[in-house]
Design a protein around this nucleic acid. Structure first.
Lengths: 245, 245
DNA sequence: GCAAGGCATGAATCTACAT
DNA sequence: GATGTAGATTCATGCCTTG
């Protein structure tokens, strides 16, 4: 999918790949009031076992690494279902980690069957092209300022999940994309590790959140998305987006 | 190392394996006041590349899985250096994840070069023997009670690092073990997922924190440790330990 | 005895540039 | 590419000393 891109051409990659949730088919989880929870069971999250998922993961990560500038950085977000596989594959490709960041999800779903701890976070891996990479962007002072004049930590990322007026919905009221990420999370990513004018790539664009934030912050952006309905959604969203306030 | 153990014999495993930090050799990190940071560069954290580390990891995890009861659970702690590799290997062996838990480290080292986010957490993976495992212990109500009558989340684990009078030191004042874990963290693990009388195994016993907590909570324990100096240390520590208050 | 301030220290893949 | 050096930079905690 990235074959057309030249080597070493992108400053920042933000990737939100399929999580491969492996939910039991046919079973539906219900809230105590009887209402149903709509699971992520779209075709794009279906794989033929770990091997298939790993092959898919290796393919897109290799291309991302190839087109990343030696001064660029890559972010990948995931959950415990997939992030460990993704992280090991990244390391095996030679991507060198800078941090793993915990997004604490405010307003996340409580645990309904009381047999596990409540899932309340997602993990972001932040890395450079390879071990010898130098000169990547890290806006230390800006983040420190944003964090009450204290160093920003890898555990200071608390943001509400995407809901309310930010959440895109069709005329039927059903959410347009099952895993839309909050603007503030992506904004934090771009503010941390990019400058104005940088080229930002999102290889799994979905509803276009990365594009919207990039536009608002004066970064150039490129998005890739397999499903036409999401491409249409994202384009419309970016066009209509104006900076609030 | 676990060859002598029968299959399906252990209720809980807590493993704190080498992290394979890959620190630059010879370079010393200094605080702004000129004092030196003592790095973890012990022989037991040295490996011949990722392949070597993966082989080591696969070996001990396979044995842990073998001796774990079908109703038992396993915890593994690590950082971004190693936890993704360890996690993928666990999944490949068929261990089924229940949660990944974020230990927020109160009092962790700040970032001195200001080129990354501050490392402020470690990650614990909690899993069962395999996907079809049932009947594991999860003390939901107890944890809820401990957490102010709210469900315990995978991000609610904030504990201070091991220091002060809890930190074991030799007569020279130098810490006896470079990576001693805080009692409260291990206590939380045991309270979450074990009952009185359960058999708890720590395959990397180190300074014996798991043993001390297990004893205090009325669990039976088994510890494995390669270095004799740590075995001696741990035995002495457990013998002398009495429950405070 | 108590309060305030000094000081030590923690699993660290902690950089950039010149030769 | 490898090696050496200059240069900029830190936070929370707990023990201990001082007043």
């Amino acid at each position: 999918m990235l074959k057309g891109f030249p080597d070493n051409s992108v400053d920042l990659i933000f990737a939100d790949p399929p999580y491969y949730l492996q939910l039991p088919k046919g079973k539906r989880l219900k809230r105590p009031d009887g209402s149903e929870i709509i699971p992520v069971d779209d075709a794009w999250d279906q794989f033929d076992g770990y091997e298939d998922y790993d092959r898919f993961t290796t393919d897109w990560l290799k291309e991302c690494q190839r087109i990343l500038k030696p001064t660029g950085t890559i972010w990948v977000i995931g959950m415990y279902h997939n992030i460990f596989r993704v992280g090991k594959i990244m390391q095996d490709l030679g991507i060198w980690f800078l941090n793993d960041v915990i997004w604490v999800k405010i307003g996340a779903l409580p645990n309904l069957n009381c047999r596990r701890l409540t899932n309340n976070h997602e993990t972001l891996i932040w890395g450079v092209k390879d071990k010898k990479s130098k000169g990547y962007t890290f806006n230390y002072q800006l983040l420190k300022k944003m964090n009450g004049d204290k160093q920003m930590k890898d555990t200071d990322w608390s943001f509400g999940i995407c809901r309310g007026s930010e959440r895109l919905r069709g005329k039927d009221g059903i959410k347009s994309h099952p895993t839309q990420k909050p603007l503030k999370l992506i904004q934090q990513v771009l503010l941390t590790s990019s400058k104005k004018g940088d080229i930002v790539l999102d290889p799994f664009m979905g509803s276009g959140t990365t594009a919207v934030v990039a536009k608002a912050l004066g970064r150039k952006w490129v998005g890739i998305e397999r499903e036409k309905k999401y491409v249409d959604l994202a384009i419309k969203r970016v066009e209509n987006f104006t900076i609030a306030k």
